[in-house]
Design a protein around this nucleic acid. Structure first.
Lengths: 112, 112
DNA sequence: TTTCGACATGTAGACTACCGACAGCTAGAT
DNA sequence: ATCTAGCTGTCGGTAGTCTACATGTCGAAA
């Protein structure tokens, strides 16, 4: 009945993950999700059903690289980091996001 | 292969239509689509496959009202206008959009 | 007077990306 | 021994968009 209130603006999850990896360096999936939630000010809660498929997709695109390792809490985890093409992709996604928001902003200002 | 480059930011079509009707008053579907394309600076081209289903959906939600009439070009058309709940919905969607963009903006600024 | 382009509305099917709900496994604490 | 938190994943469903098609009308040009 009620409208879906997507916590992550639709289509920005890749962008958020890529940006997180750029800012934080190497991280594992669980920590990436936690970090995104935290920066969003706890309002946003990101489901695993979104994060892991996204990571797999990004890895297949060649934008991130994965590597098994041991976490701070001594668990076997997959560490992810940005690739060179991932950096380019991040720039492209930022640009496209800014274009999109500019478009909507122009609309919201329009009054004639 | 290539990533879908949605011209309308996903989920904002309702917002754009509602805002158009608020700004322009009563309009028919074809004109709404033209107007959205035009304000976007011709870069965006909006397919009918998006607009008409959206209008039907908005009408079913009770946010817009439809009425048959005759266009400037002497054709039988459906005129749409905002309802009272449609106005409230528009406010809500604007707020939610601004919240979403603020969230992403905070992310893009983050550097620690 | 046919015919063509712009105007106008719609539907079907595919696709993307997200979410909720599971399932399962491990380390360390109780 | 059991439990909780950390951690990775899968399945199925859903929303919203796009492409492509189908249908029809008006007015102007040929």
């Amino acid at each position: 009945m009620s409208k879906q209130q997507s916590e992550v603006p639709y289509g920005t999850l890749d962008l958020l993950i890529l940006k997180t990896l750029e800012t934080m360096g190497t991280m594992h999936g669980y920590a990436i999700a936690r970090r995104i939630e935290q920066v969003s000010g706890e309002t946003l809660q990101l489901s695993q059903g979104s994060v892991y498929p996204a990571l797999i997709r990004l890895e297949q695109e060649g934008w991130i690289r994965e590597e098994w390792g041991i976490s701070e809490t001594n668990r076997k985890v997959k560490f992810y980091s940005l690739t060179r093409t991932g950096r380019k992709q991040l720039l492209a996604e930022v640009a496209s996001w800014e274009k999109a928001t500019a478009l909507v902003a122009r609309f919201l200002e329009a009054s004639r």
